[in-house]
Amino acid sequence: MGGKVIVIVRVIVAGVFLVAGVMKIWDFEHARSATPDFTIAIQQYRMLPWPDLTVALAVYLPWLEVTAALALFVRRFALGAATAVLGMSAMFVVAIGSAWWRGLVLDCGCFGKGRAPTDLRLHLLAGAVLLAVAAALIVHEWRRARRD
């Protein structure tokens, strides 16, 4: 039973990260790079004081999401990928949580550019779920790696 559940969980998590990553890389609606929009999204959190680092993050983070999502299915890298997913989820929770704490109104930039400000509490919840699922994936991969 555990095996099937973990496969489903992995597919869902990978799917979320893959879609999130791709939509931050390319804006399909306007057929252009989505990096500028994601840069602005990151800026709105007002957590990074250096504009250059913001741009670098806006370029790198989406590719990391895509890479980690795909690597979840490669046995040799699944443990590392799950750790990356955990790290990104934690980052997400911290960013959203601090935005909510500071009373910022913003579009979270989760799946490329949104149209309306994000309900931060809902996203905080989603982030917490992702965090828990990523932790479960790590535990699973850890056990499997130990068996191998």
Binding site: V66, T67, A68, L79, A81, A84
Partner: peptide
């Protein structure tokens, strides 16, 4: 593995 994933993502980025 984590390092590998991080570096792998760096290339397309």
């Amino acid at each position: 593995q984590l390092a590998f994933v991080l570096v792998l993502a760096l290339a397309p980025a």
